[in-house]
Amino acid sequence: MSNSDINGKTALVTGASKGIGKAICLELAQMGVKVAVNYNSSKSEAEQVVQTITDMGGEAFKIHADVSDLEQVNAMVDKVSDEWGGVNILVNNAGIINDGLLMRMSDEAWHRVMGVNLNGTFYCTRATLRHMVRERWGRIINIGSVVGIRGNIGQTNYSSSKAAIIGFTKSLAKEVATRNITVNAVTPGYISTETVAGLSQRQKDTIMTWIPQGKFGNTEDIASMVGYLASERASYVTGQIISVDGGMAI
């Protein structure tokens, strides 16, 4: 375990049972942060993340909540507060996709993606912000997407939700800047996760033509940036949209 400048702080990471969320949890735990591992449907995977953290000497617990449900979010944050006194670092990572061309997109596909990706970010941030303001220290890190910057066919709902997070990040950063709270967004490109693994080779080949570096990223690439933004080294960085995408957003 690292004796970092945020050792002993508490974090809530949403959508944390696998992929990017899992890597973020492990990165923060390595920095000495106590981590609440949020999950919705992947309970066993969340338990494995907690076990990995405890095995390496860290402190963590799993907590269930559908972040699109306001009551569940409030109950989750209350539980973390009961355990640790409050959330110092919030990572809004939970997100879903439900792709399709707009003219065939159902209302449910639109509202569900917006509910998790955008409303979930709002609910979790509002629920944790008061403690950060009271403590006069906080880190809010929103996980966006490169398609929120450049768009993508068949993802108008997903792209819209992630583009909205950019405006959310910049506006909130201005609201809380004098309270020693930073608000930033990390926008991943195509990262080697289960979602990318499920693409056809033809799709992967097409995507590769969009990436100047000519390769997919790793979950650790995103986690490293989140770790930096959570630390005191980034205390003068706020309202920024940081692309970690191999140059895809250029």
Rank of each mutant, 00 (worst) to 15 (best):
I143V: 11
A36Q: 08
A94F: 07
G151R: 08
I153E: 11
G95Q: 02
G85K: 03
R202S: 14
G167F: 03
D5P: 15
G217I: 01
R112Y: 04
R136D: 14
R202L: 07
F168S: 04
V87Y: 01
N74A: 08
R233A: 15
M248A: 06
T238L: 03
P212T: 03
M248Q: 12
E27M: 09
Q48I: 08
I241E: 00
Q51I: 01
L172Y: 02
I222T: 01
N93M: 03
I207K: 00
N38I: 07
A230M: 02
D66H: 12
V146N: 10
A36S: 13
H64F: 10
A127H: 07
F168E: 03
A36F: 06
D69P: 10
I241K: 03
N40A: 05
E47Q: 12
D107S: 08
V186Q: 07
Y123Q: 05
V73Q: 01
I191D: 13
G239L: 05
I181C: 08
T128N: 06
M114F: 08
I63Y: 01
N93R: 01
G227D: 03
E83H: 08
R126G: 14
F122N: 03
R130H: 10
A185R: 04
V146R: 04
K62A: 15
S2I: 05
V146S: 12
N117I: 05
Q240E: 14
V37G: 09
G86D: 05
A11N: 10
K18R: 13
Y39T: 13
N184I: 06
I63A: 08
L12M: 11
I153F: 11
Q30D: 14
M248H: 07
I191V: 14
Q72I: 08
V226C: 07
A60R: 03
Y158L: 09
E108I: 04
L199Y: 13
Y158I: 11
S4K: 06
R233E: 15
E220W: 02
Q213H: 14
G227P: 05
L118P: 09
Q240W: 04
G227E: 04
V226A: 04
D69Q: 13
G115R: 00
V237P: 09
I89G: 11
L12H: 02
G115A: 09
G138N: 04
W137A: 12
M132T: 02
V67N: 01
W137K: 02
G214V: 09
E47R: 08
S192C: 09
I211W: 02
I149F: 09
S17P: 14
T193N: 10
I140F: 11
Q72G: 13
M132I: 05
A173F: 04
M103K: 08
N152P: 15
G95I: 00
V80E: 06
A223P: 13
K9N: 15
T156Q: 10
D107R: 03
I149R: 09
K22H: 11
N88I: 00
